[in-house]
Computed example of a mutant assay.
Amino acid sequence: MGHHESSIGAFWTNPKESSEMSKPTLLIISLGELGTNILEAVARTDLFEPVFVGSRSLVKAEERVNNAAIGAGIEGHFPDLRAIQLDINAHDAPLKLRQLKPDYIFSAPSLMPWWKLDERASALPFASFTALHLSLMAKFRDVIEKADTGALWIGASFPDVINAVLNRNGFGPDCGIGNIQEPIPKIQAAVAARLKCLPQNVDIRMISQHAFEYYVLNEKRTETLPPYLLQATALGRDVTDIAEDVLRARFPFPYDLHFNRVTASAGLAALRALLNPTPSAIHLPGIGKLIGGYPVQASRSGIAIDLPPDWSMDQAISVNEASLAWDGIETVETDGTIHFTMETREALFSLVGKSIDILSVSDADEQAKKLLNAL
């Protein structure tokens, strides 16, 4: 999957890319709410042929496929959707995956998604539940690595951190979706309203980590934000001062199941960019070993970090890593080990009754079991 550690230029390059590339195939595994919304969105396009939908339960996969097929058909799309039985824990999972030969893989597994947490648990730092994502993503990693299909892997489970953890520990996703991309339309629309221009004419470049959007998409005007970098231009002029103001404006937002539809839109935008023969500007989180999200140029040839001339890569990395504390993470080591902040340590102790200071791939299963028992 061609990872490159350059500051600007090709970060990921597609080994399958060619000028005569046929319509690619997509495999969606982990049919939770986000995976289902991605399926529904993709079914209403002509981007992939076929789309494989994998689940431990073939019946569940068939039901989701048929629901998407009917809805898409009503809108005039009749995609090739194929339900398959795929248990990531089965010994033959790598072989099945290798036989499918997908060009793109999408996964967003979690042992307990954020929207299922009760009021007590949801008040804890977000990092408290990282093991619930990492445990399954590590299992997916092992299967995808053994299958060795050369597919681009989009990992969407807390990608700003999980993707970096896996890549620093070995093999991991190429990129994630959502998070950094999701507050940008709010900024574009508000800036455009002030300037009386089209939102599409407002160009945004941003560096931010997962926690940022929860302060921007919020029912209260927010003066204090997690660390970030922002540049906005419109009509040939710098309008960053306007963007800085409007991003803090009150913006009531439903953090419930409807949020998955927004993330699916971000996923569809990412897929369109990654399938385009010519590079296009987009923001992506969880790129290789990098924490947080970045502006990139993406195409079917690969992903390249695309910073404004006055931002350095070291500066961008520092900003995103400084934002980790707002999710309850002190640092992520070069080997992928997560160190929790004191607030998260205290929250985990109150939840499971034991001291938990760190999280790594090797102890993710055990920590996830403790969390599930407590929840």
Rank of each mutant, 00 (worst) to 15 (best):
P295K: 02
I242W: 06
Y294I: 00
P308G: 08
V319W: 08
R300S: 11
V239K: 02
I287F: 02
A316Y: 03
R250T: 12
L307K: 09
G293V: 03
I282T: 01
S350L: 10
L324Y: 09
R237P: 13
A347L: 07
T233N: 04
A264I: 04
A266W: 05
L351D: 00
Q231I: 07
G286A: 07
E333N: 10
R261K: 15
L271K: 01
G288A: 03
A266C: 14
F251E: 08
T222Y: 01
E333I: 00
I338C: 00
Y294W: 11
P277W: 10
E223L: 12
S318Q: 14
S265I: 10
L257F: 13
W326M: 08
S265N: 12
T337E: 06
F349I: 13
L257Y: 13
K289Q: 12
H258D: 08
E244M: 07
A232Q: 02
T240S: 05
T337I: 06
P227D: 01
R345L: 03
I329Y: 04
A232W: 00
I338N: 03
L225T: 05
S318E: 15
R300I: 08
E223I: 14
P308K: 08
N276G: 13
S318W: 05
R250S: 13
D327P: 05
Q315I: 06
D245N: 12
G293N: 04
L351A: 14
L274Q: 01
V352C: 14
T224E: 12
S323M: 05
A347Y: 11
D256C: 04
A270F: 03
S265A: 11
V319N: 03
S318R: 14
I242N: 00
P254A: 01
D241M: 11
F253Y: 15
T278G: 01
P285D: 06
F259K: 15
A264F: 07
F349M: 12
N260D: 10
M342L: 11
D314S: 15
S312A: 09
E223T: 15
L247N: 05
L257K: 14
V239F: 02
T334A: 00
P309G: 00
T278A: 12
A304V: 09
F340M: 07
E333H: 13
D310Q: 13
H339S: 10
T224L: 11
G302T: 10
L274Y: 09
T337H: 00
P254V: 05
F251D: 07
Q231V: 10
